[in-house]
Design a protein around this nucleic acid. Structure first.
Lengths: 339, 339
DNA sequence: TTGAAAGCGGTACCAT
DNA sequence: ATGGTACCGCTTTCAA
C-alpha cells in the first residue's frame, strides 16, 4: 500500500504538504490540495494510523472495560459507545473484567499498555482508591455506574434512588399497600440507593416501612426465588414485590408460578434495568429503565471533549433519570377487584 | 514513560539488545538479560505497542465485525473471542454492521484502515463476491456463519441442516406427527438448510412432507405470530411447531397464548439458537443450541495459527454440530395422553 | 553475543 | 502556502 512519500512524489509536493491535506487543519492552496487528493485517489492511499499514532503520541484508541461481555446488560451500551466513537474516528478496544478485582486490574493495565488515550470503565470489584490512584497517574477515564466523589465529573450514573422510588410508587399508584422489596447486596451502593427510594415512596404515601418486608438478595435470580419464599412466609402476604434488578424479578416470577400464584392478579412484580428479556417473561415484566446506553454515549462524548478537545456540542450530564416501563406484571391488587 | 533508550542506557547495553530481550527470540547472554530486566523493572518500562507495530508491520490487532452489537446473539461469541485473543496478546477492535450492506462494507474498510492483521466477519448482507475479492486483496479474514466454497477453509459454520433435523426429530421422538414449520427467509442459506433438515427428519420417520405446513417467515417474532395464525387456519392443526430461530418461536408462544392454547400440552414449540432468553419464556423454550461462541473461538485459533504462525495446538474444525436443549415447551402431544 | 544504523510512515516545528 | 527535517519508539539486518 502506498505511503505518504509516494503520494508526495506523484503530486509533486513535499510530504509535509500531503500531511497537511490529510489533517485538513493548516491552510493549503486549493490547487495543491486538489493535486494531492488526486494522487491519493490514484494510489488508493490510506494514512497509516499506526504511524500517525506514533508520531502524534495519540493512539486514537479508547479502551472499554465491562464486567461481562456475554450478557444482555452491557451490549446496548457497547453498541452506542462504538457508534459514537467510530464516528469520531476512534478505535474501540473492548475487554471484560469478569467481576473479579484482579482481572479487572489486569484488564485496565492491558488497556493502558495498548496506549489507549482514554478508558471507559464499568467495574464492580475495583476499589475507589485504585481509581483515584489511576486518576493521579494521569490516566484519562470515565466511570459508568459508580459514583466517586473525588472524581465526580468523570462518573456517569443512573439515579438509583429515583429508580427505586418510581418502582414502588408505580405499585402504590395502582393501589398496592403491602409491598415487599427484594434488594441487591447491601455492600453495593446502587442496591442501597434503590432501597432508599423504595422507602421514600412508602413514606410519601403514608405507608409505614417495615424492615421485615425487605429481603436482601444478591442480584441473581436464585435470590429472587428465595426472597419470594421468605416474603410468603410472613404474616401478611404482599400484593406486590419490587426487586432491585430484573434477574431477581424473574426469580420471583418463577417461584410464584411454582407456588400456583396467579400473576399479576394475585401478585405484581416490578424489576429494575429493563433488560431485553423483560418482554419475554410471563407475565412480561414491568421494570425501571436503566439508561445504561445513554450513559455510555455520554461518557464517550465526555472523552471526545475532554481528552480529544473535540466540541461535540453536547452538554455533559452525569446523573441519569429513570422511568418505569409498564408491562403485564403490574396491575391493581386483587382486593380492589373484590370491592 | 520510559522508552527503550533509557532502558538500554541504564542497563549499559545497546537498544538492540533490549529489543532482543523484549522479544525473547534471539539469544542474549543470561547476565545481560538479567541486567536489562532489572533496568526495565526499575523504570517501569512497557514496550510501546504502537512503535512495535510500526517497526514490525504487524499491528497485533484483530478486527471483529458483527451485524449487531446490541443483541444477545453475538455477545457470547465476542466474549470468547476477546478472551482467546487477549491471552495471545492481540487487541480486539469491534465494529457493528447493522445488517446493512453499505455499513458492513464501511466497517470492513474501517477495520482495514485500522491496520488489523486479520478480521473475523459475521456478516449477513455482504455478497460472497465481495469476500472473495477481499481474499484476493490478501486481506486475512475468517467468516462465521457463512459458507463460501471458494474460501471454505476460512469459513466456520454451524451444521444448519443437522440442527433442523434434530429439532424436528426431537418432536417426532415425543410422538408428534403433525408438525408445522416456520422458516426463516428463503434467500438465506441457513434458513433453507434448517428446513431441509426438517424435511429429512420427517422422511426418515415416514411422515409425508406437506409444503402447506411450512410458513416462510423473516426471523422476527412478528412473523412467528403470523406463522402461528397461518398454521392454525389449516385443516389439521399442528401439535408441534418447529421454528427457524428463537425469535419466531417466541412469536409463536405469544400468539398461541393469546389464542388460549395450553402449552406444551396442546402445542409444543421448538426454536433454534438457544438464546439467553429461551429459559425466560413461558413455557421455557426448547431450542437447538447454536455453538456460535465455539465458532468464534475456533476462528480466533485459526487466525492465531494462520496469520500469526502461533501453534495453539488446536485442530481446526470448520463445521460445528448442534444439539437440542430440551425445556418445557416440548412434551408429548395430547392425543397420546388420550389413549 | 552484541552494537550500529537504516528504516517503518507519519507529525510538527522552523524556515523560506 | 510550502518545503526541509528532526523526531516518535521500536525492529531488523549487517558487521564486528
Amino acid at each position: 500500500m502506498a505511503n505518504i512519500y509516494q503520494v508526495a512524489e506523484r503530486a509533486g509536493v513535499s510530504l509535509a504538504t500531503v500531511s497537511r491535506v490529510i489533517n485538513g487543519k493548516s491552510k493549503v492552496a486549493q490547487r495543491t490540495k486538489d493535486r494531492v487528493e488526486i494522487a491519493m485517489q490514484e494510489l488508493g492511499y490510506r494514512p497509516n494510523s499506526i504511524a500517525q499514532s506514533l508520531a502524534s503520541a495519540t493512539s486514537n484508541r479508547v479502551g472499554i472495560l465491562v464486567s461481562v461481555l456475554d450478557g444482555p446488560f452491557f451490549s446496548n451500551m457497547l453498541a452506542s459507545i462504538e457508534t459514537t466513537l467510530r464516528d469520531a474516528g476512534k478505535h474501540v478496544i473492548i475487554t471484560a473484567g469478569h467481576s473479579d478485582e484482579a482481572k479487572e486490574k489486569e484488564a485496565i493495565e492491558f488497556l493502558i499498555s495498548c496506549r489507549c488515550d482514554a478508558l471507559i470503565l464499568c467495574i464492580d470489584s475495583i476499589s475507589d482508591d485504585y481509581l483515584i490512584e489511576l486518576s493521579d497517574r494521569n490516566v484519562q477515564f470515565a466511570v459508568i455506574n459508580h459514583q466517586i466523589p473525588q472524581i465526580a465529573e468523570r462518573c456517569f450514573i443512573v439515579d438509583n434512588e429515583q429508580g427505586g422510588y418510581l418502582a414502588t410508587k408505580s405499585a402504590i399508584d395502582k393501589g398496592h399497600k403491602q409491598i415487599g422489596y427484594i434488594s441487591g447486596p447491601s455492600y453495593k451502593e446502587d442496591a442501597r440507593l434503590r432501597l432508599r427510594g423504595h422507602q421514600r415512596a412508602l413514606e410519601e404515601a403514608g405507608i409505614e416501612f417495615d424492615a421485615d418486608y425487605v429481603y436482601c438478595g444478591d442480584y441473581h435470580d436464585s435470590s429472587g426465588e428465595a426472597g419470594f419464599d421468605y416474603l410468603q412466609s410472613l404474616d401478611k402476604s404482599c400484593t406486590a414485590i419490587v426487586c432491585g434488578n430484573d434477574d431477581m424479578a424473574t426469580g420471583v416470577i418463577f417461584a410464584a408460578r411454582r407456588a400456583g400464584i396467579n400473576m399479576p392478579q394475585q401478585l405484581s412484580v416490578i424489576g429494575f434495568d429493563d433488560l431485553i428479556f423483560a418482554r419475554y417473561t410471563y407475565p412480561s415484566l414491568t421494570s425501571v429503565e436503566n439508561p445504561i446506553s445513554d450513559m455510555g454515549t455520554m461518557a464517550a462524548f465526555w472523552i471526545l471533549q475532554t481528552v480529544y478537545k473535540q466540541s461535540t456540542g453536547n452538554k455533559i450530564e452525569n446523573l441519569f433519570k429513570t422511568r418505569v416501563v409498564v408491562r403485564d406484571s403490574l396491575s391493581e391488587p386483587i382486593f380492589i377487584n373484590d370491592m
